[in-house]
Design a protein around this nucleic acid. Structure first.
Length: 654
DNA sequence: CTAGGGTTAG
């Protein structure tokens, strides 16, 4: 019987279309007897079978139960069969096949049986069919139950069809009573916010007769995703009973909105409130630590995770988050260790590790890992390719990059986005093919974003091409009129090309727009996790004279090795002596001087900077790493530079 | 049946 049925269902799966046929639905079904009015014996029987079905964890097991039902002439027990349909669709059995067949074999259909099918269609993404079936159900005079509506709203949220959602919303009121059902209300809020109609969701929330922590949390998350942490916080404060999920939503919300300190503060409050923490909470905290980029936090969060009993090797999400965090905190070794130890790896783990290699200037490791990833079942996604292309770009591997870019769509089904074009323009630009990069930007099939022109402008700085720089900048000034960096870059490109008038014209433009340079700032962590900050030209640090002495000494020794201060990019109308002085007090040099003074000679010096490292400092630190024999790691706002023995991992492209 | 998660660019 089982074998026979297995065969039958298989053939039906392939023959019954997923689209609903009018013919089948026009058969006359009849309303079933309500469960409460069933005979006692039948009640017991159905309940028993339902609990057996609940325990099934494969389609084969469900088929066995079904065979038993048919064998014993119970094929009109619609409560059990509704459960059966529900279980089948849970296992992603196509709803047009087997579950549909079960539905049709029952003559006396109850709301649960109908709903099971409505749900089935909706979870499999056949929303229109699901709604159509709901219409049929209504025509037959079958009243919906609350999860008929939750299924429909969930589907609308998936396909972002708010108009359909509003129609069904109207139905909940028309049919009566369902609009005030808590479950239905919550799914409606979720539907509205998923569709981007936060106001509708909020209105619904305000009008709901009954709300629970889930209703609140849904809105808190919606505000957070909209970048409105103020409203999220307000709601959170008003929330009478806060649970772990609500707290986590706040922690994660701050982390996702680039407010890592607030995220950590919230996490602390959460712990003080005695709320339990789980892996989801920790992922938010780890992400906040990644943004802070400090080893101090990295070590702290790892301890928190371990003391909460979460092992990175056994939790793929925690592991992936840690890989990202360690690589952003400058410790590629720790990132690798986590990656190696992981028992399961997915596209996030690989992408994070690949991006880690790319940003730390190890393109070959990135590409090797990409190839290893392809050997596994893991499919790369658009983010993976950003990492891979960035790696190619840093290694100057234009040809490999081109090939991978071309293979994205045809081999991996990932259509290149504007961001991938950014990588390609960057790739071509870095190797000096500026004309080609410009051509790509001008002819790409998508609308070029600011990143595309920014990459081109950056390449013009490396290769000193003011003409193409002007084209790129003209786009950028329109797209990002207030982004100071673009003006600075263009002005420096002009200055390097000795086009002083143009350079000062740009400076004037900046002034006219009221734009002021962000003060350059570098910082480093000394012992005990104390952070020291240095601003360019700022000699107020108590050890400034010692720091300057160290730098002067270094400068003298570097000059012997052939170093010359890189003055050309400075557009200031001051004497060369003053320029040299200004250069020597760049924030990253001050931090370096302090690092050489204040840390033991066997450890590496880790400096962070809020802007891109300057050309002169890059040269200076390269030399310093050779003279002092120290490893110096600088994280600027773009990437990591590992200086060792007079070489930098970025290959002088940055 | 309803709520919170990790990767990306100049």
């Amino acid at each position: 019987m089982v074998a026979f049925f297995g065969k039958l269902s298989k053939s039906l799966v392939s023959f019954i279309p997923k689209q609903l046929s009018q013919e089948i639905l026009s058969q006359k079904p009849q309303t079933a007897v309500p469960f409460s009015q069933l005979q006692e014996q039948r009640k017991i029987l159905e309940s028993k079978l339902v609990s057996i079905l609940d325990g099934c964890n494969s389609v084969t097991q469900i088929q066995q139960v079904h065979a038993h039902i048919l064998r014993n002439g119970l094929d009109q027990c619609c409560y059990v069969l509704a459960k059966l349909v529900r279980m089948l669709t849970k296992f992603e059995v196509p709803v047009g096949g087997y579950p549909r067949l079960v539905f049709e074999q029952v003559r006396y259909r109850n709301p649960f049986l109908w709903t099971a099918l409505v749900r089935g269609y909706s979870v499999q993404g056949f929303v229109k069919e699901s709604v159509f079936l709901y219409g049929c159900m209504r025509r037959e005079g079958i009243g919906p139950v609350s999860f008929t509506f939750t299924a429909l709203f969930k589907a609308c949220g998936e396909i972002l069809d708010v108009n359909l959602g509003r129609q069904i919303h109207a139905q909940t009121i028309l049919v009566g009573g369902f609009a005030s059902d808590l479950f239905v209300g919550n799914t409606m809020i979720d539907m509205y916010v998923k569709c981007g109609c936060l106001d509708s969701g909020r209105k619904l929330f305000d009008e709901m007769p009954e709300r629970d922590v889930i209703s609140w949390t849904e809105l808190i998350v919606a505000y957070a995703k909209n970048g409105n942490m103020e409203s999220a916080g307000q709601l959170f404060d008003e929330l009478p009973v806060k649970d772990m999920v609500a707290w986590t939503a706040m922690v994660t919300g701050y982390a996702q909105n680039a407010q890592p300190r607030e995220a950590l503060e919230f996490f602390e409050r959460m712990q003080n409130a005695g709320v339990k923490v789980d892996d989801v909470t920790l992922v938010g905290v780890i992400s906040a630590c990644a943004q802070l980029g400090a080893a101090k936090y990295a070590n702290w969060v790892r301890e928190v995770a371990e003391s909460s009993g979460f092992v990175p090797a056994k939790n793929v999400v925690i592991g992936s988050a840690l890989i990202d965090m360690y690589s952003k905190c400058g410790s590629l070794e720790d990132a690798c260790k986590v990656f190696e130890a992981m028992e399961e790896r997915n596209v996030f783990s690989y992408s994070s590790m690949i991006a880690g290699f790319a940003v730390h200037g190890r393109p070959h490791d990135a590409l090797q890992l990409f190839n290893e990833m392809l050997d596994t079942e893991t499919k790369p996604n658009r983010v993976t390719f950003i990492g891979v292309l960035t790696a190619c770009s840093h290694a100057g591997m234009a040809e490999e990059g081109r090939q991978i870019f071309a293979s994205m769509e045809e081999r991996f089904g990932v259509p290149p986005s504007a961001d991938h074009y950014v990588c390609m323009v960057d790739l071509l630009g870095r190797v000096g093919q500026l004309e080609e990069a410009l051509h790509l930007a001008e002819t790409m099939p998508l609308e070029p974003n600011a990143g595309v022109w920014g990459a081109l402008l950056g390449a013009c700085r490396i290769h000193g091409n003011p003409d193409i720089a002007e084209i790129a900048a003209s786009h950028l000034f329109k797209m990002e009129p207030n982004a100071i960096g673009n003006y600075v870059l263009l002005s420096n490109i002009y200055a390097s090309a000795r086009q002083w008038d143009d350079a000062s014209r740009i400076r004037k433009l900046m002034r006219a727009k009221g734009l002021r340079k962000n003060p350059a700032c570098s910082w480093l962590e000394a012992k005990k996790g104390v952070v020291y900050e240095f601003f360019a030209g700022d000699l107020t640090h108590p050890e400034s004279s010692k720091i300057m002495q160290v730098l002067e000494d270094l400068l003298d020794r570097l000059k012997i090795n052939g170093y010359r201060p890189h003055l050309s990019a400075m557009a200031y109308d001051v004497s060369d002596e003053d320029k040299k002085r200004l250069l020597l007090t760049h924030s990253e040099k001050l931090a370096l001087g302090f690092g050489l003074l204040g840390t033991s000679s066997d450890s590496s010096i880790r400096i962070m900077k809020n802007l891109r490292i300057c050309e002169d400092c890059h040269l200076f630190i390269c030399g310093a790493s050779q003279i002092t024999g120290r490893e110096i790691i600088v994280r600027d706002n773009m990437r990591f530079h590992h200086f060792r023995d007079g070489q930098c991992s970025c290959g002088n492209f940055w």
